[in-house]
Design a protein around this nucleic acid. Sequence first.
DNA 1: CCACTTAGGTCAGGTTCTGTCCTGAATGAG
DNA 2: CTCATTCAGGACAGAACCTGACCTAAGTGG
Lengths: 347, 347
Amino acid sequence: MSTSARMLSLLSLLQTHRYWPGDELASRLEVSGRTLRRDIERLRDLGYAVDASRGVAGGYQLRAGGQLPPLLLEDEEAVAIAVGLRTAAAGSVGGLEETSVQALTKVVALMPAPLRRRMDALKAVTDTPSPWGGGPTVDAVVLTTLAQACRDDEPLTFDYEARGAEVTHRRVEPHRLVSLGRRWYLVAYDRDRQDWRSFRVDRLSSPATTGPRFRPRELPGGDALAFVTAGFRQIPQRYDVRVRVSATADQVRWAVGRYGDVSPLDDHTCLLEMKVDSLEWPVMVLAQVGAPFEIETPDELRDACSAVAAHFTSAAAGQQGRAATVGSHGPAVADGGGHGGRVGARA
Amino acid sequence: MSTSARMLSLLSLLQTHRYWPGDELASRLEVSGRTLRRDIERLRDLGYAVDASRGVAGGYQLRAGGQLPPLLLEDEEAVAIAVGLRTAAAGSVGGLEETSVQALTKVVALMPAPLRRRMDALKAVTDTPSPWGGGPTVDAVVLTTLAQACRDDEPLTFDYEARGAEVTHRRVEPHRLVSLGRRWYLVAYDRDRQDWRSFRVDRLSSPATTGPRFRPRELPGGDALAFVTAGFRQIPQRYDVRVRVSATADQVRWAVGRYGDVSPLDDHTCLLEMKVDSLEWPVMVLAQVGAPFEIETPDELRDACSAVAAHFTSAAAGQQGRAATVGSHGPAVADGGGHGGRVGARA
DNA sequence: CCACTTAGGTCAGGTTCTGTCCTGAATGAG
DNA sequence: CTCATTCAGGACAGAACCTGACCTAAGTGG
C-alpha cells in the first residue's frame, strides 16, 4: 500500500471512531508504530488537528480544526446527505438553496450508480405534504446536471414543457441556475431560437450534456436573477393576504413559521400578512391557530373560508345529514379565543 | 509539497470543476506533466474513476465510480449539509434519521468553531411551521454530542427536565440513540440511580462528555428501541382518527403526505386514517382538502372542527359583526365537492 | 493532414520513506 | 509514590520511491 493511500485510510479510520490506540492503527495499516507516528505527524503538518492522549486508554483523535478535512462517508451516509440537501435545495430551508445545490452537485457527481438509485428511491418517501413540499418537487439528478453544466460551460439538451404548450426539445448553452420563491429556473441561451430564455426546472426533463464546452456568452444586463424576474409579467394571480387574528402574535407565528409576517396589534390580536399564489396555505394556518379572525384581504379568502366552514360544520354535526347547522357547538368558540387558542392537545 | 498533500489537492481540484486540462493541473500542483500523469494513475489505482478525454479541449474528470471518494467541501457547503441533515434527523424525512445523525456527527465533529456558529445561526431560519416541525426542535450539537458519546463509550453529564419535574443533573453511561415517531430518545445507564433510563433528547441540555471511557454494560433485553417503547405506558392521549372524505384518494393523499393512510371507498369517497397525538394535523389536512367529510372517530375531532367552523364562518361573513351566517356563500360549497376539490388556485 | 491532448516506457539521480533502537515525558491505576 | 501504558521524536542505514527529461504511441476534432 502506497503512502498516500495509507494517509487516506488513516483519515478514514480517524473519522469513524473517536479514540484510536496507536497500536491498533499501526496494525490496521500494516506499518510499524514509528511509521504511524510519522503519518500522524504528516497529517498534522497538513493542517489536520489530530489530538492524542497519553497513558492508559489513550489514543489518537481527529478534532475540529482550522480547516475542514475531507469527509470520508459510508454509502448510506452519502445517501442521507443527498436526500437532506435535496430537501434543502427544494427551498424548505431558506437562503441556503444555492449552496445546497452546489454541495449536492459534488455529492451526486461522485455517487456510484447504485447509490444514486437508492437516493432516487427515497424521493417518494421524503416528500412532505403539499403546501410545504412546494408544488412539484425538483429532481436531484436534474438539478445537479444543470448546475454542473452551468459550472463547466457544457452545452445542454432537454425536453421542455412550456405553460400549456406541448413538449419541445431544446439545445441551449446554460448560464445560471436561479432559485426564486420555492422554484428553480435555468437561464440559458437557446441555440435554436438564438436568444436568451429562462426555463422552469420542474418542467424540464431528461437533461443531458452534449458535445464539447462552449465559450460562455455574456448575458445582456448581466443579472440572471433580474432576467428571470423580468419574465414575470403576467403571473396569473397573487394574493395579498391580510388577516386580523384574535390571538397573540407568538401563537400565530408558531403556526405560520417563517412564511408570513406577524405583527402584534395589542395583547390579544395581531395582523397576519402573507403573499401567496394559492389560498390553501393561509386557510391551513388559520385552521391551525384556532382563534377567531377577520379577513381584510382578499375577498377570495372569504369564499375559501366559507367553503371550509360549511364542510366542517356539517362534519361536526355528525352523521345526521349534511345540513349546515352552525352554532350547535357554541361553547367551543369561546374556548378558542383565550388562553391556548390551539386546536386539540399536544403530547 | 509532499506527495500525499499533492494527492489531496489533486482530488480537491478534480472535485471543483468538471474538466481539467493536464497542463493546468500540472502547473497548479507545481510538478511536471509526467508526474501529474503518474499522480492520476495513482488515483486510479486507488479506485477513483478518473476519466480523460483527448484532443482539443480535453482534460481530466472525476467520475462516479465504484466507491465514494473523500468529499472535499467548501465551508459553506459543509454548513448547508449540516443544516440539511439536521432537518432530516429531525424526522422530516423518514427512515433516514439514524443515518442522518451518523453523518451529521461526522460533519459536526470536524467543523471548525466558526462554521459551527454559522450552522447554529441558521437554526432559526430553517424551522418549518408547527406540526411539520414536530414540536420542539432538536439541537444539532446536542444530538451529535450524544451520538458521539454513544459511539465512543464516553460518560456523559447533562441537565434533564423530566415531565413537569424540576431540572436534575445526570451522570450516565450512554448506550444508544433511538428515533421514535419524530422524537429522539437517549437510552443510558444512570450512574447515580444505578439503573437504565431513557431520556427525551429535547428535554436535555448542556450535555458534556467527561472523563475516560467506560466499559459498556449490556442493556437488559438488549433492544434499545423496545426499552424506549416499554416506557410508554401512560401516554396522555392518542387519537385514532378515521374520517370519510368526499374526494378521491389521490386528492387526500396529496394533502396528507405520508403521515396517514388513505384507502379509496369508491370513486368519490375515501377513508382517511391517522394516528396522532394532537388534532391540529387532521384539522389542517381536512381544511386543505376542501371537500365534505364525515367523522367516524374521534368525537374530539368533531369539537375541534366545530370550533374552526365557527371562526371561519364569522370571518367569512365579513366585517358586519360576527354572527354565524353560513350559507351566504353557497356556491363556494358546491364548488368544493366536485372537480378540483382544493381551496383556491395553484400558480 | 495537423494541432492538441492523454498514455506510458525508460533511465539516472536524488529524495523520501521505513524499521530498528533509543530516550523522554505525560497519564492514570494501585 | 511507583509502575505500566502510551505518545513523542532523534539517529541511522538501506531500501523504496519519486521526479524530470526524453521519447514514442494513439485518440480527437477541425
